[in-house]
């Protein structure tokens, strides 16, 4: 599984990428939407893990752009929102039920990544 982690909190995604690597996941990370759109030009990813709130282009808009370029790519959102209820509207707009609230447990992320890869239709 090749995963792209996108969050303007680069220390977060850098650490997360290392922890995922320990678990056999090939994870790259970038600090924003513009870098993500560049990275996918040179490397194929099965899944993108996106922060919802990022400068200029947020995760929901980034998902739309990536999906237009790579329809097979799957998505998980990370959010700092305090409750799942808070995020429901945004996730519905993005067409995805796959999201996790920060701080995230690595086991929960691994489980969600496996789920999203198995439910190819739901995240589109």
């Amino acid at each position: 599984m090749r995963v792209l982690l996108v969050d303007d909190e680069t220390e977060l995604v850098e650490t997360l990428a290392e922890r995922l690597a320990f678990r056999g996941v090939e994870a790259d990370w970038v600090g924003g939407a513009a870098d993500a759109l560049e990275r996918v030009k040179t490397k194929a990813f099965d899944l993108a893990v996106l922060d919802v709130k990022m400068p200029k282009i947020g995760g929901i808009e980034l998902k739309k752009r990536l999906q237009a370029l790579y329809p097979a790519m799957k998505f998980i959102f990370l959010t700092g929102h305090g409750s799942e209820e808070d995020f429901t509207a945004g996730a519905a707009e993005a067409g995805s039920n796959f999201y996790l609230i920060k701080p995230v447990k690595i086991e929960a992320l691994m489980k969600k990544m496996n789920e999203v890869m198995q439910h190819s239709g739901e995240s589109r």
Partner: peptide, 21 residues
């Protein structure tokens, strides 16, 4: 502010997790 606090906590959480790993 609460969003930024969440991010700080998330980074602390990942560093703690990496220490465990």
């Amino acid at each position: 502010i609460s969003h930024e606090l969440k991010n700080a906590l998330a980074i602390i959480n990942e560093n703690a997790g990496l220490l465990e790993d």
